[in-house]
Amino acid sequence: MLSVSRRALASQGKLADARTILQTLLDGAPDDSAAWTDLGRIRLTAGDVGDASVAAARGGAGTARALRTDAAGRGDP
């Protein structure tokens, strides 16, 4: 349920709300790599590259790859 809610909020541009849900989820499940990936994407979308990198590192190598792919698709360096 939370994954649907956070993704729906993010797709509607409600990044702060999605970030709050993710932080709550990660407080209880700090090893949830999918949540870290979503948080990294939200942070990257918000222009917070530094914190997106932190989330990528916490999520593992797959998260870092996903964020680079997202950034490349938007034309970011």
Rank of each mutant, 00 (worst) to 15 (best):
L2E: 12
L2V: 15
V4E: 09
R7P: 10
A8I: 10
A10Q: 06
A10E: 12
Q12S: 13
K14I: 03
K14T: 02
K14N: 12
K14D: 07
L15Q: 01
A16R: 05
A16L: 00
D17W: 02
D17P: 11
R19L: 14
R19Q: 14
T20E: 08
T20N: 08
L25S: 13
L26I: 15
A29L: 10
P30A: 11
P30F: 04
P30L: 08
D31L: 04
D31P: 00
S33A: 14
A34Y: 12
A35E: 06
A35Y: 10
W36H: 15
T37S: 09
D38N: 15
L39I: 04
I42P: 03
I42N: 12
I42W: 02
I42C: 11
L44S: 13
L44W: 07
L44E: 07
L44I: 03
L44P: 13
T45Q: 09
A46D: 15
G47M: 02
D48F: 12
V49A: 04
V49D: 03
V49W: 07
G50T: 14
G50E: 11
D51G: 00
D51W: 00
A52Q: 00
S53G: 15
S53R: 13
A55W: 04
A55M: 07
A56H: 07
A57D: 08
A57Q: 08
G59C: 13
G59I: 09
G60Y: 08
A61P: 11
A61I: 08
G62Q: 12
A64V: 13
R65C: 01
A66P: 04
A66V: 13
L67F: 06
T69Q: 09
D70H: 13
A71Y: 01
A71K: 01
R74C: 08
G75I: 05
G75Q: 03
G75M: 06
P77W: 03
P77V: 14
